[in-house]
Design a protein around this nucleic acid. Structure first.
Length: 769
DNA sequence: TACCAGAGGAG
DNA sequence: AAATCCTCTGGTA
């Protein structure tokens, strides 16, 4: 039993050798593969003539004629096998331009990926059985002037935790501090060496970090090279490698995958901020030890025993938390790696488009399908310029409704994709008669031959149904956990297929397919609305694949639910087999404000809020909490007067000046390069002010700012929270631009006239309550 | 007041 | 480097 962690290749004597890095129960294994050669395909204009042209290239080992499926037809291709991976990139452009070559295909696939596709090996298989040894690490860096600089600022401690139970902080200088996990070594060099040695001695298989790709490893690498230390963390003694991955970096350790939990957390959770503390709180529901990092250098230079102890404890808690997060989130990553058959290093850094594509590449190879080429940058931009019509959203009936039933389609888009056989190879086929079903977009889909992607998707859906069945029968919690992860991974992939068709950089891009799926989705939701209204319900809202309905004049909950089920029975008989409308919930009361903004109260009295300020990171807690209280007063007690009292109290508190900074903070992401803004908002101005004081901000960062008293415009007044004193906030801004808009919108939907609201708002603004 | 860029949510 | 639909803010003219 073994699990495949990593693959690379080396060349010896002009021969390419693939190395497979396995973890076994009792150790490691590196297997060498010498009989796999790089290759690509050429599509000939004339097969024999192209063969003739190819004779002049001496790096070619073999040329074979093959028949392969290319979208709607079968074609002849030449499989060109070469000596080394670099020969592929060198030869492909020359061969592409030959007179008798139409195009080259599968000629830009990295060699390791090529091998993974062809070998059918499954990375991370048996990952739960081999006993993977997982370590997390974190560093603290001397930062006397804000952002540390590797040219001058040393690493002052490295913390380490692994799933064998070892917990360590390595540091220097403070020999008098005694803590059971703390080892005071001679200097910075020694702590780096100790870290490398420990990873090797503990025989660690997977290294995890929190933002190791873009902070810890680049910093560590820089410091190590200044100190003339080899960062030889690789299984084979190789040093870590920093790779460019789009806008970011990836830190690669050979044979011992480094998994950065930060991008995974950004993908998995929807949070206001993604500091380690925020994630820890989200997953475990308890606070992680925290310190003021701005004070770290001061404490480091002091002899403050308690302060220093706290600093070391904090450092350890970072590594321990990272390990705990990894132990929680990695199983899903392993499963995604198994399904897509990408190495865990790649898979854990992939987006949904890349994952779908990896899966398709593997399946295409199994089915003798020639993969379409990736689009050029120019073609991708071209594709991006044209949009298409997506989902339908029902204009809500504003205000309060009682006894609301929610219906929605189970996996609407995947089920349409499968039911209608929507695929680039089946769209507008030539083999089907004229009366074939036309979607509202005027496309139709082959009825004779099942498409490639519908086939894969229905396999996935079938597999998921089987897993869910097993899950229902399984008692062992450990096995249940694994089955649940399995079905979850499949769901993620299935739900990405529609978006993949419209993804400009996709190989199997097809706008026609994407817009047909969306158009059919609209037809089905319209059909549902029509029929549910004929059945005596009234639609109060709906979005894409869901409808919220009420039964006017009916007050008996049981009767409403009975009717809902009768309706479901009727409509599901009319729907295609793979499609199903489901009973999703019953809500005693709800308030609808606008499209995509509403709140519901469930039968337990729990508030479910969608789209409103309460759900947005770019609104302050004070506004969000007040809105939430107002919603509760209205939905629980139908008591707008109480709501008004709540608001009155909050306005008073804001005026008094004793609202805590953390309740005034607004989080906004920097979504573009700082120089690219035409209209920079308050968060950008706040970030720029902070940068003058040594802070670093870049695209992707979330700025946490407060609107202070100092300045004229809102942007003037915005400062990042670290630089704001408690009490320094613009009360009028928080009253007029935060709390009041958030709550007045709710009251407006209740039917207060605009004039009443103006008075209401004005009164509050004047503080006359 | 109308308009636009920008952000982040829903599904 | 998955898609579209939609609301709302802050700044500008």
């Amino acid at each position: 039993m073994k699990t495949l962690l990593d693959i690379d290749y080396v060349t010896r004597d002009d021969k390419v050798i693939i190395r497979l890095f396995y973890k076994k129960k009792d150790g490691r294994e590196i297997e060498e593969v010498t009989d796999f050669k790089p290759y690509f395909y050429a599509v000939p204009v004339d097969t024999e003539k192209l063969k003739g042209e190819l004779k002049k290239f001496d790096r070619i080992l073999k040329i074979e004629k093959k028949r392969m499926v290319d979208m709607k037809k079968e074609i002849d291709v030449l499989k060109i096998t070469v000596k080394q991976p670099k020969d592929v990139s060198e030869l492909r452009d020359k061969i592409k331009n030959l007179e008798y070559c139409k195009e080259v295909r599968e000629a830009a696939i990295p060699f390791v990926e090529r091998y993974l596709i062809d070998s059918g090996l499954i990375p991370m298989e048996n990952s739960e059985e081999v006993g993977l040894r997982i370590a997390a690490f974190d560093m603290e860096v001397y930062n006397p002037r804000g952002e540390p600089n590797p040219e001058r600022d040393p690493i002052i401690m490295i913390s380490y935790a692994d799933n064998l139970g070892l917990k360590r902080v390595w540091s220097y200088k403070h020999e008098n501090i005694k803590l059971d996990f703390l080892e005071i070594l001679k200097d910075e060099s020694m702590i780096i060496k100790k870290f490398i040695d420990t990873v090797n001695e503990q025989k660690i298989d997977i290294i995890t970090s929190y933002n190791g790709d873009n902070f810890d490893f680049p910093y560590l690498k820089d410091r190590a090279s200044r100190l003339k230390i080899n960062l030889s963390l690789g299984i084979d003694g190789s040093v870590i490698k920093l790779e460019r991955r789009g806008m970011n970096l990836g830190a690669r350790v050979r044979g011992r995958p480094h998994i950065d939990m930060y991008p995974i957390c950004r993908q998995v959770f929807n949070l206001s901020r993604y500091q380690l503390e925020d994630i820890y709180l989200e997953i475990f529901g308890r606070k992680k030890l925290d310190i003021d990092v701005g004070e770290m250098a001061k404490v480091w230079n002091s002899e403050d025993i308690d302060g220093l102890k706290k600093l070391f404890e904090y450092s350890l808690s970072d590594a321990v938390s990272t390990l705990e997060i990894a132990m929680t989130l990695l199983p899903l990553q392993y499963e995604l790696s198994r399904i897509t058959r990408d190495l865990i290093y790649e898979s854990s850094r992939s987006g949904s488009g890349q994952r779908v594509e990896s899966l398709l590449m593997r399946k295409a190879h199994e089915m003798n399908i020639l993969a379409p080429n990736k689009p050029s940058d120019r073609l991708a931009e071209e594709r991006q310029r044209t949009s298409y019509t997506g989902a339908y959203v029902v204009e809500p009936i504003k205000g309060i409704h009682d006894n609301i039933v929610l219906f929605d389609f189970r996996s609407l888009y995947p089920s349409i994709l499968i039911s209608y056989n929507i695929d680039p190879s089946t769209i507008d086929c030539e083999c089907c008669p004229e009366d074939n079903y036309k979607t509202p977009t005027q496309h139709y889909f082959c009825k004779k031959k099942k498409g490639f992607i519908p086939r894969i998707l229905s396999e996935l859906v079938t597999k998921r149904i089987e897993i869910k069945k097993k899950l229902r029968e399984e008692k062992d919690p450990e096995k249940r956990r694994l089955l649940d992860v399995e079905q979850h991974a499949i769901k993620l992939l299935a739900n990405s297929a529609y978006g993949y068709y419209a993804f400009a950089r996709a190989r199997w891009y097809s706008k026609g397919c994407a817009e047909s799926i969306a158009a059919l989705g609209r037809e089905y939701i319209h059909k549902t609305i029509r029929e549910v209204e004929n059945f005596g319900f009234k639609v109060v809202y709906g979005d894409t694949d869901s409808v919220y309905v009420i039964k006017p004049k009916e007050v008996d909950k049981e009767k409403i639910i009975d009717d809902a089920n009768s309706f479901l029975k009727k409509i599901n008989e009319e729907l295609p087999e793979a499609m199903e409308l489901e009973f999703e919930g019953f809500y005693p009361r709800g308030i609808f404000i606008t499209k995509k903004r509403y709140a519901l109260m469930d039968e337990k009295g729990i508030l479910i809020v969608k789209g409103l300020e309460t759900r947005r990171r770019d609104w302050s807690n004070i506004a969000k909490e007040t809105q939430n209280k107002v919603l509760n007063a209205i939905l629980h007690e139908k008591n707008p007067e109480k709501a008004a009292e709540i608001v009155k109290g909050v306005v008073k508190r804001i005026r008094k000046g004793d609202v805590a900074l953390r309740d005034l903070a607004i989080n906004t992401q920097i979504t573009k390069g700082l120089g690219e803004y035409v209209q920079p908002g308050p968060h950008i101005l706040a970030a720029k002010k902070a940068m003058k004081r040594g802070y670093e901000f870049k695209r992707g960062d979330i700025v946490t700012y407060v609107v202070t008293k100092k300045g004229v415009s809102i942007s003037d007044k915005a400062r990042i929270i670290d630089f704001v004193e408690e009490g320094d906030y613009d009360a009028e801004y928080y009253i007029n631009n935060q709390v009041l808009p958030a709550v007045l919108r709710i009251l407006e939907a209740l039917g207060y006239s605009e004039d009443e609201l103006k008075g209401f708002g004005k009164q509050m603004r004047l503080g006359s309550f």
